[in-house]
Amino acid sequence: MDLTLLMYLIPSLIMFCCGVYGFITRKNMIAILISLELMLNAVDINFVVFNRFLFPGEMEGMFFSLFAIAIAAAETALVIAIIINVFRMAKNIDIRELTKMKF
């Protein structure tokens, strides 16, 4: 059985929707971060798949996802650091409780 474009895109879409759902509904900041990564990875998959199926001779999509993965790793490290600091300050990482800098 040949793998078609759609067979890649549908899991990617499901991943993305899970990410969006998680981003909107989760209270825990780490869960939100995970959801964010999920969305990012879904997009990465799309890049790779489109590159592979539509422009088989080119490599730009691949490289782009490599870049995105590297940046996502750095971003994750940064966000985790922020979360740790927030926890130290507020003893809490519930996004709805963190209203200290509001207004």
């Binding site: 969006v20 981003f23 909107i24 509904t25 996004i95 209203t99 509001k102």
Partner: peptide, 12 residues
């Protein structure tokens, strides 16, 4: 509201 989640929700 300042709540990013609700912004995302509305945006979505």
């Amino acid at each position: 509201s300042g709540s990013i989640q609700s912004y995302v929700y509305v945006y979505l």
